[in-house]
Amino acid sequence: MSSTSQKHRNFVAEPMGEKPVTELAGVGEVLGKRLETAGFDKAYTVLGQFLVLKKDKELFQEWLKDTCNANSKQSADCYQCLKDWCDEFL
C-alpha cells in the first residue's frame, strides 16, 4: 500500500475541478459507468459523498461497494485518493 498509482498521483496533484468520476484512483470504466448511472458523474459528487460520510473509511468503502459493486482494492484506492486530495486541498 505504500506506493500509489500514477492515476492517484495525477488526481492528487491538482484541484479536481470538473474532472469526471473515472479520474479517481480505483474507478475505471466499468465502475465509472455504474457510478454515473447512480448519478455520480463528476469526481466532486463522489467527494461530496466522501465528506458526508465524514471521511470514514469503512463507511465510504461500504458505500462504494453498494453503489457500484467495487471490490475492496478499488474502494480502498478511491478512498485513499480522496483522502489525500482532501489533505492537500481542503
Partner: peptide, 10 residues
C-alpha cells in the same frame, strides 16, 4: 454524519 437517502443504508 448526515443521514440521507444515500447514506441511510450504510
Amino acid at each position: 454524519g448526515p443521514i440521507q437517502d444515500t447514506t441511510r443504508n450504510l
